[in-house]
Amino acid sequence: MRSILVFLAGWLCASGVQAANGVTAGGVVLLQAEPVIQARVTADKLAPYLKQVDTAATHALKAAASVPASAGFVVVAIRPGEQSAFWLDFTPPLPQALANDLIAGAKAVRVPMVKGTVVVAMKYGVAGGTAPSQPMPAPKEWSAAAKAAGKPLEIGDLVERIWK
């Protein structure tokens, strides 16, 4: 089985450049251990899916006019039944219309078959902002769910608690 990290590494090298339109792709962050992800989906299925989500996100970000420089994450979660959910963690936050367009485009991408919840994040800089340097996203919904749980949660469990 190909390593998820090896498969995504090539994509990271190709996507980490500043585009002329002010959108910077900063790579993929695995939010679960690689063996967990590998047990749930193959790299051959995950990488093309993430590339299509990246294309949809980049398209929405390129189409945005007059947005302030921002940096953040698009968090991607997929689970059995070809279901997907997305959370954004940008500073400053993206305008609501842009956030809605980005999520709608990402949700239109067909989800690969998986054997359990898989969660990753993609880093972006927008309107001249640089991709974030922090290692992990922290969407507001996640913080609230973690606090309500009263104990540390594995990312997959956390996502399942707040899945809409």
Rank of each mutant, 00 (worst) to 15 (best):
A144W: 05
I78L: 09
A138P: 00
L8Q: 07
S66A: 14
G22T: 08
Q18E: 04
P137H: 11
P92C: 08
F7I: 15
G125D: 03
W87M: 06
P80V: 07
L8C: 05
A146E: 13
P112N: 06
D101S: 13
I37H: 02
L12Q: 15
A127D: 07
A39P: 00
L46F: 02
A149S: 13
I37K: 01
L46T: 03
G156L: 05
A71R: 01
P152R: 11
A39W: 07
L46A: 05
W163R: 06
P112F: 00
S70Y: 01
A9V: 12
P93G: 11
W142M: 08
V41T: 08
A145C: 06
S15G: 15
M122Y: 00
V75M: 04
A149M: 12
A97L: 13
Y124P: 06
L98P: 02
G129E: 04
W11K: 03
K45Y: 09
A47D: 02
E154S: 15
W11P: 00
L46R: 01
V126I: 06
R110P: 00
G129Q: 06
Q18F: 08
P35M: 10
K151H: 13
N21L: 09
V41G: 03
Q32T: 11
S66G: 14
V6Q: 08
V75L: 11
A71H: 02
Q52M: 11
A57V: 10
W11G: 09
E34T: 10
L94V: 02
P93H: 07
A145Y: 03
H59R: 04
L30A: 10
A56R: 02
L158N: 04
L153Q: 12
L12P: 01
G150T: 08
Q52W: 07
R161W: 13
A121C: 06
V126L: 01
W11I: 09
L61A: 11
N100C: 04
V17S: 15
L158D: 06
L46D: 03
P137E: 08
F7V: 12
L46I: 06
Q18S: 10
A19H: 14
S3I: 13
D44Y: 12
D101P: 01
V29A: 04
V29R: 07
K123Q: 07
M136G: 01
C13G: 15
P95V: 05
G125V: 05
G10D: 10
L5K: 11
A71Y: 03
V67N: 03
P152W: 14
L30Q: 10
V74Q: 03
L46C: 05
K115C: 03
A14G: 12
I37R: 02
A57N: 03
V120N: 00
A60V: 07
G105R: 01
A104T: 11
D157K: 14
G105T: 01
E160P: 04
A25I: 04
A131S: 10
Q134N: 09
S3P: 02
F86L: 12
T58D: 11
Y124K: 02
A65N: 12
K107V: 02
V111R: 01
F7L: 12
A63F: 15
A144G: 09
A57Y: 02
P137G: 10
T117L: 00
L94G: 04
A56E: 05
F73H: 06
D101N: 12
A20K: 13
A99T: 05
A63G: 13
A127S: 09
V23F: 05
V76S: 03
I4L: 12
T55S: 12
A131K: 01
A47S: 08
M136A: 11
G125K: 00
K107G: 02
V126S: 01
Q18I: 08
P92N: 10
